[in-house]
């Protein structure tokens, strides 16, 4: 469990970082929190020729908040975002999801943007970004581009990020309604067997006017389903949950692994959709 040899780069600016990435091309890998990359290296499941450590790059640790949402820099640790009162106020779903990301020691090192770039369909943050319709900002020697979540997650562990690009921040839009994140994991802090993030808006009569969910671990990428119609403009107490669950279950593609059958994940997602929407409506 020792990594194969690699060249180590420690740029101090975004400019320098993207220049190195341009130079090393497909052989380069960016190191931020290292919570996924370092185990992959040690188990020799990844063998990049060049490691570009961005931890010394200035200006990437920012968490910027305004009425429109939260912009999280590439070096902002999970723990910093979780503890940011301003971020929680602007977008409570971030804190609700981050509580369930692994354990505190991992959250102290791991980064929000790193989790998005890793694009694990079982992870919480890609689902949050996808649910909220957020975006990721990518820098390269030829400039910056902003990629919408819907286009960013292209498959399991696959994103729209191109060779030579560095994800410098992600934007989580605000939502003028309630949110919740519920999941069931084997052990505390494990990747969820199924999990659902929900964003719900109610009118003054407490009828559901907008609702959507993002499901984890049941497809190649977070599965976002708009269930506004399925909720039938009813109050939460009167919603036909069978119809809502069916609307979601028809969109997901769970697979079996050693921890859960596909059947169970499908069932569990249904249970969690109802729980998440009810919790989100309670806010």
């Amino acid at each position: 469990m020792k990594p194969p040899p690699f060249d180590y780069h420690a740029p101090t600016s975004v400019r320098e970082a993207v220049e190195v990435l341009a130079e090393v091309g497909a052989h380069g890998k960016v190191l931020a929190g290292g919570q996924s990359l370092i185990p992959l290296l040690n188990m020799r499941l990844a063998a990049p020729g060049h490691l570009v450590d961005i931890n010394r790059v200035a200006g990437l640790g920012e968490i910027e908040t305004d009425a429109t949402g939260v912009r999280v820099g590439a070096l902002a640790r999970h723990a910093a975002v979780e503890r940011s009162a301003a971020a929680s106020l602007a977008q409570p779903l971030l804190g609700q999801a981050l509580k369930q990301v692994a354990h505190s020691v991992i959250r102290n090192r791991g980064t929000v943007v790193g989790s998005l770039v890793h694009a694990d369909p079982a992870a919480e943050l890609p689902a949050v970004l996808a649910l909220l319709g957020g975006s990721v900002r990518l820098a390269s020697v030829s400039g910056e581009r902003e990629v919408a979540a819907a286009d960013f997650f292209t498959g399991p562990m696959e994103s729209a990020i191109r060779t030579g690009e560095l994800a410098v921040s992600a934007f989580f839009p605000a939502w003028d309604g309630g949110t919740a994140f519920v999941e069931v994991a084997r052990r505390h802090g494990d990747y969820a067997m199924a999990g659902v993030a929900a964003a719900v808006r109610l009118d003054d009569d407490l009828r559901v006017t907008a609702a959507r969910v993002a499901c984890v671990s049941v497809g190649p990428a977070p599965v976002v389903v708009d269930i506004t119609e399925a909720c039938g403009n009813q109050s939460v107490a009167s919603v036909d949950w069978g119809a809502v669950v069916a609307a979601v279950q028809e969109r997901i593609e769970p697979e079996a692994d050693i921890h859960a059958t596909a059947d169970y994940r499908r069932h569990l997602t249904g249970v969690l959709v109802e729980r998440a929407v009810k919790a989100a409506a309670d806010v």
Binding site: V184, R186, M193, H259, A260, T261, D263, Y264, H267, L268
Partner: peptide, 11 residues
């Protein structure tokens, strides 16, 4: 026994 196993037993 896991939750998935118990679910299968129930089914």
């Amino acid at each position: 026994i896991s939750p998935s196993d118990l679910y299968a037993i129930r089914r």
